[in-house]
């Protein structure tokens, strides 16, 4: 790890002052990704601003709109086992339990989960080029070892994926990210929080360096009746998704009233396509409709060799997830039989 200084501000204003003082400063909460990357010399902050003691960011509260506000410091474990989330947003609880391990979930924060960086082998290996780590150095994953890489929304500079499970569910639930900065507070719709790599793969999100996530707000609708989080990976636990699907449906008799589908493991951000979801509205909740949605979602998918299988896998996973959601039989994260 590089040398850095440490600050532990007592309140949000203090934290924002600390971060503004030093462009090399970074906030730290759970540290499960940042410390990891610092040990690999991928992240080399000059100052760490410890936000774990900031007041008011560690609660799950009701919002005026009828949703829930999850403070940025709420641990992944607290989300997974919160009774209100379990009842009203079981999709979110399930996605959180699909990720990492109990130890990591105990330490990892909500804000930090949103800011997780890719697991691309090259990004992690400072001895190799990587446009995300070192802009302009190249992307060896293109034409290299890329079985875990993206099939959607890639650019010629980067084919990395976003590794979070929780974010896939938050995308499907259309959460809103609450942010504070020197200019005050702002709200970022989840779909606009993470970015595609484009010409600047070094930027994962639209958050500015001097801004801090304060909360994630869930809108009232939680799709508690018809949802699933289906994660497919290289072993049955403690592995990142090759493909994951968060599916949420509102049914009206045998027909779909509304649908949400978000994909993990396939793009630089949780992948959604509102047109594909809109096209499901009014359709019967059956395989043929699901197949059409899958076709639309994956229309632009492109493999890079080792990850070609992901296109087919994602299609099958979407079909299964939608049928699980429609049947009201969400995937268990402990019984590994796929429903």
């Amino acid at each position: 790890m590089n040398r850095f200084t440490y600050a532990r501000p007592a309140d949000l204003a203090g934290a924002l002052r600390e971060i503004a003082r030093d462009p090399g400063a970074r906030f730290i909460a759970g540290g499960t990704n940042l410390v990891d990357l610092m040990k690999y010399d991928v992240e080399r902050p000059t100052r760490l601003v410890d936000v774990t003691r900031l007041p008011g960011l560690d609660a799950i509260e009701e919002t005026a709109a009828g949703g829930l506000r999850i403070g940025a410091l709420v641990s992944n474990t607290a989300i997974a086992y919160d009774a209100r989330i379990g009842r009203r947003y079981p999709l979110l609880a399930s996605a959180v339990l699909a990720g990492a391990s109990p130890q990591l979930r105990n330490a990892a924060s909500t804000g930090g989960n949103l800011l997780q960086r890719t697991r691309c082998y090259y990004f992690y290996d400072a001895a190799t080029p990587c446009n995300k780590r070192e802009p302009g150095s190249g992307c060896p994953a293109i034409g290299g070892v890329n079985r875990i890489h993206a099939i959607l929304g890639t650019s010629e500079h980067c084919i990395a994926t976003h590794p979070s499970d929780m974010c896939v569910a938050l995308a499907a639930l259309e959460a809103v990210v609450q942010v504070a900065g020197p200019g005050g507070e702002r709200a970022i719709p989840f779909a606009e929080f993470h970015r595609l790599p484009g010409d600047h793969p070094e930027r994962d999100t639209t958050l500015c360096q001097d801004e801090i996530i304060t909360a994630v707000e869930l809108p009232p609708e939680g799709f508690a009746e018809h949802h699933t989080y289906l994660k497919l990976r290289d072993r049955l636990s403690y592995a990142f998704a090759l493909v994951s699907v968060a599916a949420a449906l509102e049914l009206d008799g045998g027909r779909i009233a509304r649908a949400r589908i978000a994909l993990g493991g396939v793009a630089h951000k949780p992948w959604r396509m509102p047109e594909a979801e809109a096209a499901l509205a009014g359709q019967p909740a059956e395989a043929a409709s699901f197949a059409l949605a899958a076709d639309r979602l994956l229309a632009g998918a492109q493999g890079h060799g080792h990850n070609d299988f992901k296109i087919d896998l994602a299609r099958r996973a979407i079909l299964r997830a939608l049928s699980q959601a429609a049947a009201g039989t969400p995937q268990s994260q402990t019984d590994k039989r796929i429903r």
Binding site: T128, P140, G144, V145
Partner: peptide
Amino acid sequence: DHRLGRFMNHNLAEYHVPVNA
């Protein structure tokens, strides 16, 4: 990665050994 002549998944997150599950 045969172009780099280097093993790439050199960690326990990406080199998978069986876990309890």
